[in-house]
């Protein structure tokens, strides 16, 4: 768990982060979202003390980070930036081994860890371990950047626009992969982005920043239904609001008993996907199946619309 308490940062007379507080639970993903210059990066960099706060403090599992030597703190916190900053003169394997080497792990343990991570990120060790960063595609570089940050099994991962230089097609896949890996490892993540879709896709909680201030820190659903300020409402986008809401709820919550004809929809799909299927196939309802394929009920356009209204 990390607790951010009254963090402030000033450069001269310019207040860049103004009294920001929030808490991220164990294994949660908190997304900090806001326009460029809002102070997101500065806030993130105060967590691993690349920037020293003027006021406030950060607690990790109850321990004040100011009491831990800087480099030691950073060994324990993964850090991924937009350009990844891979070391161009080191191979993929050497890049990933950076922090374990600093920590003095023995060679066998490092080699095993590098291989494990390459597998986890779907990079064949035989093919990629000895390549240099410039020989990789953008998506592969991104995965190596994240693998390197996770090498020493940090409990906390900080990511500053980690998908910012990927093209939209690869970006969606990279986000899904990150989610899958995060669910598997249980790593706590604080991620900075200016992309609202990314925030809704990834965030367990979303922190909206503007002009150095934290405007709202809430779950995605709360943000949609109870925006704290007009700016939050505007950022969320009024036109997109119903669809965003539907994408936060699964078929499970709007399922009705009974039968329907057609291709079944899986129960874990979002209502947004279910609605898309219904429109595409021109049907009023479709059957619902569980993970094993057994039909367990039906989902209808009326049901989804009713559900969508009641949320708002």
């Amino acid at each position: 768990m990390i607790e951010i308490e009254h963090l402030s940062k000033r450069y001269g007379d310019n207040i860049v982060v103004d009294d920001v507080s929030f808490t991220v639970g164990e294994g949660e993903i908190a997304v900090v979202v806001g326009t460029s210059g809002a102070g997101k990066s500065t806030l993130l960099r105060m967590i691993n003390r690349l920037v020293t706060p003027n006021e406030g403090r950060v607690l990790i599992d109850g321990q004040d980070t100011a009491t831990i030597p800087e480099d030691e703190l950073r060994h324990r916190i993964g850090y991924v930036i937009q350009g990844y900053g891979l070391f161009p003169h080191r191979t993929v394997a050497e890049n990933i081994a950076t922090v374990p080497r600093l920590l003095g792990w023995d060679r066998r343990r490092i080699a095993a860890r590098v291989e494990e991570l390459l597998d986890l990120f779907q990079l064949d060790p035989g093919e990629f371990a000895q390549k240099f960063p410039h020989q990789l595609s953008g998506g592969q570089q991104q995965r190596v950047g994240v693998a390197r940050a996770l090498a020493a099994k940090p409990a906390l991962l900080l990511m500053d626009e980690p998908f910012g230089s990927l093209d939209p097609v690869i970006r969606g896949k990279a986000q899904d992969d990150l989610l899958a890996i995060q669910r598997r490892l249980g790593t706590t993540i604080v991620l900075v982005t200016h992309d609202m879709n990314e925030a809704f896709h990834l965030g367990d909680r979303i922190a909206v920043m503007d002009g150095a201030r934290l405007l709202q820190y809430a779950t995605p659903a709360d943000l949609l239904t109870h925006p704290a300020e007009p700016f939050v409402e505007q950022l969320v986008g009024t036109a997109e609001r119903p669809f965003r809401l539907l994408s936060l709820v699964t078929v499970q919550d709007a399922m009705e008993p009974g039968h329907a004809e057609g291709e079944p929809i899986i129960v874990s799909a979002t209502l947004r996907d279910a609605l898309a299927q219904l429109i595409w196939h021109g049907r009023q309802d479709l059957p619902v199946a569980d993970a094993s394929g057994t039909l367990i009920g039906r989902i209808s356009v009326d049901g989804i619309l009713k559900r969508g209204r009641s949320l708002a």
């Binding site: 690349l50 950073r74 900053g85 161009p88 600093l102 940050a149």
Partner: peptide, 26 residues
């Protein structure tokens, strides 16, 4: 590159380690 140095700092390489392992080799 600035992002290489930023990443090195973020991973906890000391000033000395940054100089000898990253800046001078590059």
């Amino acid at each position: 590159p600035a992002d290489v140095i930023e990443a090195a700092r973020g991973m906890g390489l000391s000033r000395r380690q940054r100089l000898f392992q990253v800046e001078l080799p590059l």
